[in-house]
Write a protein that binds this DNA or RNA. Sequence first.
DNA 1: GCCAACGTTGGC
DNA 2: GCCAACGTTGGC
Length: 159
Amino acid sequence: MTVRRRFWLMKSEPDCFSIDDLERVGTEPWTGVRNYQARNFMRNGMRHGDGVLFYHSNCNPPGIAGVASVASDAYPDPTQFDRTSHYFDPKATREEPRWFNVDVRFERKLSRLISLEEIRGHADDLGDEFALIKRGSRLSVMPVSSAQWSLLLSLESAR
DNA sequence: GCCAACGTTGGC
DNA sequence: GCCAACGTTGGC
């Protein structure tokens, strides 16, 4: 039985960790996600091999900078147990971990940044429920349909 | 740096 | 369970 590949968008602040950083290290454990909705997408939805749009946030201009892939199934985020970590969570236990992460693997940089502004220009095709352009949404990990995936990547060579 | 919008915490 | 206070996100 084949499991259909799913698609995701993951945000990262390039000052903190950019697509170039991901290219350098190859694969990165996506630790530190402390939002339940984002956690649920990683823990319950992501499968090894899924496609990832790597989005640069909190920068100028924000937008999709590259393509990555999910390189593991979800596992307990080790930083929740690390007292020295910024992401330490005193309520998490090894028996009942609260936070999970996947590994993210570099695939390629886009030939140009697909900016948020440009993405907004295709809101009609992307749909109202696309969290990236939904008003007030701050989700850092979100699902992308195969139609949205194709549309967004088609913009790379669209001009 | 500002601040709107959202999520979480914790007292009650 | 309510909700005020606080913290965070992230575009601008």
